[in-house]
Design a protein around this nucleic acid. Structure first.
Lengths: 122, 122
DNA sequence: TTGATAATGAGAATTCATTATCATTTAGAT
DNA sequence: ATCTAAATGATAATGAATTCTCATTATCAA
């Protein structure tokens, strides 16, 4: 792996975001640098491959990427601006939902609604 | 709306399934009837439009359809056979995850693992 | 400095789900 | 029995996300 001037920028963008970012979002954040979308995809996928990043798949949207090693958390997707936020914590009793004879491997809780920037003023 | 010999078949398939079905799954279930995939999509979308069916979107997969009016529930997706099952109930304390200033509209809990047909024998 | 090769950007190609098109069949009112 | 519009199937077209291709540029060890 040779030096890539963009690797740090892409990973920094992901690490400093409030939630997982899509390739397009990263590309837009780095718009000033001239980085190409293909390179963004390359670096994000490479990050997943070597364990620095985690791919986050939510319904109806492109794959997103977040830093590996975060504490257990879930996600909130704003129905207005479509940004996704990490939310720490986890509801109790998820295992009680698992049907008899099934084996739970993973779970995801997806909240949606208005983020603080998009709540309609009363 | 004229008589459609397939409408009942499609809706019956959805109603008698253990979880939401994709258009492809319905098409395969009705394979013996000669129904075309386009017609399956038409009838499923029509079902959603007139309130008989609900569209269920999960990560990484086609839209699925389930009967309207089910009690509150979530979904379990088998990581081996990719079937999706409805699971009744809901974990407590989901609202406590919502960040300050955010407004929760909906939530989805997605379990994944092995369904009873796919658990590896010990 | 040079050479092998990694990194890059632009855009073509791919993949998959879904919708649109259109010629044909068919229901069902008249 | 006839006629009009709905229903249908086959398949083309679309849309969106992602990957691939390839010519070019840049890195860095020797």
């Amino acid at each position: 792996m040779r030096h890539s001037p963009y690797r740090r920028l892409v990973h920094d963008a992901v690490r400093s975001a409030e939630g997982p970012l899509s390739a397009t979002e990263v590309h837009e954040l780095l718009g000033g640098t001239g980085i190409g979308l293909a390179t963004v995809y390359r670096l994000l996928n490479e990050g997943v491959d070597n364990g620095d990043l985690i791919g986050v798949d939510l319904p109806n949207g492109p794959r997103r990427f977040e830093p590996a090693g975060m504490p257990h958390h879930h996600h909130f997707e704003c129905s207005a601006c479509n940004k996704v936020f990490a939310v720490l914590g986890c509801p109790r009793g998820i295992d009680r939902l698992v049907p008899e004879g099934f084996e739970l491997e993973r779970h995801e809780v997806i909240l949606s609604g208005r983020c603080s920037d998009c709540v309609v003023p009363a």
